[in-house]
Design a protein around this nucleic acid. Structure first.
Length: 486
RNA sequence: GGCCCCAUCGUCUAGUGGCCAAGGACAUCACCCUCUCAAGGUGGAGACACGGGUUCGAAUCCCGUUGGGGCUGCCA
């Protein structure tokens, strides 16, 4: 069998959303596995509601995920002449008829009918093509069309339930089904891998395909029908198809939050499919090697951000410190502009204050404590902003601690003399606590809050070491002052 | 309403007639580790929608019911 040609064919009506990304991934995996070609086609026949600039977003999102198209983007809006040829051939062969019915007239006629949809009013009127007249496909009255689907098997659609559907608007513009079929023929697509929502329109496409064969629309004669594979939908918490209304759908927003592309891609692959064996965290090589359309699950899947986040944490921890530091750079020391269309939130400090050496030193401790790259700045901000941001709830804990003053005073004295090294600071602090009848856990808290402004954060004594004696003492004094006389 | 698809722990899934008193992962709970928080380790709770068949044997096959979803547009 020759190398397959597949396509991802989004309509640019928004940013690339996770459902589209999953569809794209399965197409891409299939192509890579078999040495095929992955085509990106932009379905923008509806000129009313498409925005050309969205194409850039789709491209950059695909690129982020490592799924660069081998061909394209090909815009349907640039191919109207091709559709015109197909429409003329179809018309000449009698596969189409003109219709000037208005929607409300059709509705009025069919309101009490058993068979909803268009009633074939214009089928035999012999109307000429022309302004204000749509073109409908003459659907067969009997028989059925079978969709051969790699994930679902053979699905039969009786023609009796199919209306004479419109495939050319009264404006002369082709509708999705027609453009889709003409493109798949022209681009020699061998496998149509897309969302299950397109399954019901597939028989229409097949009928159009066969009509095009009969009409001799292309010089080369009949073209073999592609193999279909309809992927289960991605649904929201209400089990409804993901729509633009659902929040947190844009792939770009995951990138901007600091999800790693490898993690995101790995997670996407787990939606509707699973690698053999027990491991879910698998590299792209395994994905490409093991992916099987035949093994794709049939039921819809919910996009679980919690699981994605966990996977992301695993991938973050797997990074070397150097890789981690490089990956976080847009969040802690942004260049302008950021690479790859990334739009990271600016760090809460003056860039001048950022010290790469300090950050690199604390990075290993940070790496196990974040699940998203965007969480990093808040975890290390106390290093890089002289005016400490004190979390109110953290300070309340200090105020509620009757020994807080003693701990801080004791620490101030002990740290003035102590060797400035994390392990020494640890021992010193524990000793200080013992004198007050406190364990290490209790002792470190007021100090941590005084120095970092929070009750949680990176290991305290390493942080103190990095901050330096003078700064630590300064913050301890400030906290003491804020606490007031005991 | 019509046509079509689907149905295993809360979630994502393994399972293709006996290896399943149903396995893994996330989430959750407990414990261990521990300077906080994480990470890590150990353990727990947690599902075959229901009813009929077929079969020596069914989560796996068939039928029905119920439930969910998609499509039904001169959107894609």
């Amino acid at each position: 069998m020759s190398a397959p040609r597949v396509r991802f064919a989004p309509s640019p009506t928004g940013e690339l959303h996770v459902g589209g990304a999953r569809t794209s991934l399965f197409n891409w995996l299939f192509a890579r596995q078999r040495g095929g070609i992955f085509v990106l086609r932009i379905e923008d026949t509806d000129t009313e509601r498409n925005r050309p600039e969205w194409v850039d977003g789709i491209l950059s999102a695909l690129s982020w995920l490592g799924m660069e198209p081998d061909e394209g983007p090909i815009l349907q809006s640039s191919r109207f002449d091709r559709y015109q040829v197909a429409i003329d051939a179809l018309w000449a062969s009698g596969a189409l008829y003109a219709c000037d019915c208005r929607r409300e007239d059709v509705d009025a006629r069919t309101r009490h009918s058993d068979t909803p949809g268009y009633d074939g009013h214009c089928a035999e009127r012999g109307l000429a093509r022309g302004e204000g007249r749509a073109l409908r496909f003459r659907a067969p009255a009997e028989g059925s069309t079978v969709v051969r689907d790699l994930v679902r098997g053979a699905v039969t659609f009786p023609h009796a339930s199919m209306e004479d559907f419109v495939c050319v608007k009264s404006s002369g513009q082709p509708l999705f089904v027609l453009a889709n079929v003409v493109d798949d023929r022209d681009m020699a697509i061998s496998h149509v891998i897309r969302g299950e929502d397109l399954l019901p329109t597939t028989p229409k496409g097949i009928l159009l395909w066969q009509a095009l064969d009969r009409a001799g629309a292309e010089a080369g004669g009949p073209i073999e029908l592609p193999v279909f594979a309809h992927l289960p939908m991605l649904v929201n918490a209400q089990r409804k198809k993901l729509s633009k209304r659902d929040a947190h759908l844009a792939v770009e927003s995951y990138r901007d939050q600091g999800y790693l592309a490898v993690a995101f891609r790995n997670y996407l692959a787990l939606l509707g499919w699973s690698p053999p064996g027990q491991a879910e965290k698998v590299g792209v090589d395994t994905l490409i090697r093991e992916f099987r359309l035949e093994d794709v699950h049939h039921a819809p899947a919910f996009f679980d951000v919690k699981k994605l986040a966990h996977l992301n944490g695993e991938y973050i921890r797997e990074l070397s410190v150097e890789q981690f530091v490089a990956a976080v750079k847009p969040w802690v020391a942004p260049d302008s502009p950021a690479p790859g269309g990334l739009s990271a939130a600016p760090p809460p400090w003056d860039p001048q204050q950022f010290d790469p050496a300090v950050f690199s030193a604390i990075a290993p401790a940070v790496q196990t404590r974040v699940v998203l790259l965007e969480e990093v700045p808040a975890m290390v901000d106390f290093f890089f902003r002289p005016e400490l941001e004190m979390a109110p709830e953290a300070w309340r804990r200090v105020e509620a601690d009757p020994q807080a003053g003693e701990v801080l005073t004791g620490a101030l004295a002990a740290y003035e003399a102590c060797e400035w090294q994390a392990e020494r600071l640890h021992e010193t602090t524990v000793a200080l606590g013992e004198g007050l009848g406190r364990n290490g856990r209790k002792t470190q808290e007021p100090i941590r809050v005084a120095v970092t402004g929070r009750t949680v954060g990176p290991p305290l004594f390493e942080s103190l070491e990095l901050l330096g004696r003078d700064e630590v003492l300064r913050r301890l004094r400030a906290a003491l002052e804020r606490l007031g006389p005991a």
